[in-house]
Amino acid sequence: MSRKGQGGRHWFDDEAGPVVRPYAMTRGRTTSGTQQFLDLIALVVPEPDAPDPEADPELAPEHVEIVGLCRDTPQSVAELAAGLDLPVGVVRVFIGDLVHARFVHVTRPVPPAELPDEGILRDVIDGLRAL
């Protein structure tokens, strides 16, 4: 007796092709060693002396695409997730892989609390003008 229930469902979309779950793309990983540096506004910048990512057989196509998107202008983690149409968590894992392999590095904007006080800067400028 053949049942059409769960066993009969297709794991693909006829128009889109096979469905790949996000956890399958990252091989089940949800974090990377550099996860703490990867907030949404962190900028991903390609390393200038990095080899061609397409020549590395261990990189997934998404890794190569991330490096390509960052090649012309640095991209934030949020921009990369939107550009790749992938969840942010998956993109963070891919970026962590690329940082570990030294294809890219991540810079973080200076938090407002760490910026120098405007009053101090004005005092310094006034002091320099007085010289």
Rank of each mutant, 00 (worst) to 15 (best):
G8V: 12
W11H: 07
R92T: 08
H100K: 05
P111N: 09
E79G: 07
W11R: 06
V45I: 15
F103C: 00
F37V: 11
R3Q: 07
P57A: 13
A130C: 02
Y23V: 08
S76E: 07
S32A: 15
G8H: 14
L80W: 07
R102Q: 15
L38M: 10
V67C: 13
L80V: 15
D117F: 06
A42G: 01
P111H: 13
C70Y: 00
L80D: 06
D117Q: 05
V110N: 01
G96W: 10
A81T: 14
D123W: 03
I95C: 05
G28Y: 05
P48N: 02
P61A: 14
P61V: 10
A42P: 00
M1Q: 12
V90D: 08
F103G: 00
I125D: 05
D85K: 02
D123K: 09
I125E: 11
E54D: 15
F103W: 03
L84I: 06
L86I: 02
P109L: 10
V19H: 09
T34H: 15
M1L: 09
H100G: 05
T107M: 04
V88E: 14
D13T: 11
G28T: 04
P18D: 09
S32G: 15
A101G: 07
Q36H: 15
F103Y: 15
F94G: 04
L128D: 06
T31Q: 14
G96Q: 11
V90M: 10
G7H: 02
G119E: 15
P112G: 04
R92K: 04
T73N: 08
P112D: 11
A82N: 11
D56F: 09
A130W: 01
L128I: 10
P74K: 04
A55Y: 01
V88G: 04
H100V: 05
A24M: 12
V110L: 10
G33V: 09
E54C: 13
D72V: 10
L121D: 11
A130Q: 08
A78K: 07
D52K: 03
E118V: 07
L40F: 04
T107Y: 06
P46T: 12
A113R: 10
M1S: 12
Q35E: 14
G89D: 11
V67T: 08
S2Y: 13
P87N: 05
G127T: 01
L131P: 00
D117R: 10
L40Y: 01
V64L: 04
E114I: 03
V91S: 05
P109V: 06
L38A: 00
G17F: 04
G8C: 12
V99P: 03
V44Y: 01
D126F: 08
V77S: 03
V45A: 05
P57I: 12
R71K: 14
D117Y: 05
E47P: 01
G127S: 04
E114C: 06
V99K: 03
P116V: 04
L40A: 13
A82K: 13
L86M: 11
L86G: 00
V106W: 08
T31G: 09
H63Y: 03
V90A: 14
T31D: 12
V124N: 00
T31N: 10
D13C: 15
G7N: 08
V45R: 13
L59R: 04
I41A: 15
L115V: 05
P116H: 02
R102Y: 06
A81C: 12
G8E: 15
S32L: 05
E47G: 00
H100Q: 09
